[in-house]
Nucleic acid binder design. Structure first.
Lengths: 232, 232
DNA sequence: TTTTTAATTTAGATGAGTCTAAACAATCGC
DNA sequence: GCGATTGTTTAGACTCATCTAAATTAAAAA
């Protein structure tokens, strides 16, 4: 059995790998988990012994197949729980993260299955993030481009809002920026400040760091984009 | 913050106190939690330092007021979770225990409240055990007498079936003994073997140790027994 | 290329929760 | 009432996840 701590490290490596491809640095893991670098080093060593990551000294770590499987399972738990908390228990989607972060390590497979069934096998969580099954298709995980990649005049639809900081999420939610919202990029200031217009005409300004967190898609693109022509 | 382990010890002391009044022995705690006696000694010492139990060397431990508050909170979590798993997620009442035992230490107050609300502030869990609010009335906690206290010819109604061993629970459930079942005590053999007759005419034999676990009441007694005449 | 800086790892310590073996206290049987 | 049995505590060690301080390596600057 894997400890909750280990699951957290594996999940973190997974998320950082997705962010910027390649190997993940010790300090990135440490920072993300709020521990010191030596702690991360030693945990990553343990993970390597268990065959969950591959490491080269001073270079960084990347998940093995097995590690990826674990990460995906944890992320599935997390996103199912978020969905459940929001849909069944009336949580606001901006406040589900912490609860899910704790519970994800303690629910059984039985629980996972029953929740998934009760929710009708959902494919995305309240943030718009895909809920993996056995294999989380990396393409799917990367779905949407960062809002920060867009320029003035672009019209986009919010696909996902990453759930890092609850305050950030709350703010965006209050301003009306949630999955499904249509945005027009009004202005991209040279200080990396984005101004977008909402359907109701209101405008919101965001620093690039926040615009990074908002993943959007072309409003004309097929919602459930089968990559290439398997007709349905 | 109290660790999950500590919560487990406090809960265990509470449950053992309820069983047989007075101080709780180190070995009883150890056995219940599947640890060795020295481990229990040292944990109970820690609990005493934190003011959750009172101890006299070689005598045993009893909860302080504060310890009792903690125990009741944990038990509330446990029983709410059991109820939730059974009612909302379709678990059988014989299999809710383990899941609740893990999750009880990791849910927030927010979660507790939302679950309670969703369930309509239930007063008993699927085993028939009362779900405490802030204060678990000890009288209520002791509601029902042990089936083993009854003699031949007595007719009783099952109030609660304690959730110690899932196998035991499964067995009783299959035989038709669940909260609400009416039983007639057919025979009390001198080997401490109880035979009861169910409403459908079937009879079931049980050792006294199991009959202990089944709490029953007089079928004529008021269901929601207001102790003394507050008319409704 | 050499030096400086930044990141990473090693070394050693700590606290929590557990264990085994041994010492000690309480109780039970005669 | 005293020895034998049982239960409890002490002593000492171990693992896990963490820390700080120091050493080492890699990368960036000069």
């Amino acid at each position: 059995m894997l400890s909750a701590k280990m699951e957290d490290y594996v999940k973190t490596v997974y998320e950082l790998q997705r962010g910027s491809d390649g190997a993940v640095s010790t300090s990135a893991v440490a920072e993300r988990l709020g521990v010191t670098a030596p702690t991360a080093t030693s945990m990553l060593e343990t993970l390597a012994e268990r065959g969950l990551v591959e490491r080269e000294k001073y270079k960084g770590a990347r998940l093995t197949r097995e590690g990826e499987t674990v990460a995906i399972e944890v992320i599935r738990h997390h996103r199912l729980l978020e969905t459940y908390l929001a849909e069944q228990l009336g949580y606001d989607w901006t406040e589900v993260h912490d609860e899910a972060d704790r519970l994800e390590h303690h629910i059984s497979e039985e629980f996972e299955e029953r929740v998934a069934e009760k929710l009708g096998e959902p494919e995305v969580d309240p943030h718009g993030d895909p809920i993996p099954t056995e294999t989380l298709d990396p393409v799917d995980e990367r779905r949407g481009e960062a809002l920060s990649e867009h320029g003035e005049g672009d019209t986009v639809v919010v696909e996902r809002v990453r759930d890092r900081d609850p305050e950030e999420l709350s703010y965006l939610s209050e301003e009306g920026i949630t999955p499904g919202t249509r945005l027009v990029v009004e202005e991209v200031a040279p200080i990396d400040m984005f101004t977008v217009r909402l359907p109701d005409g209101e405008t919101v300004s965001l620093p690039a760091s926040v615009a990074e967190v908002i993943r959007v898609s072309d409003p004309d693109a097929a919602e459930n984009g089968e990559p290439d022509g398997v007709m349905g």
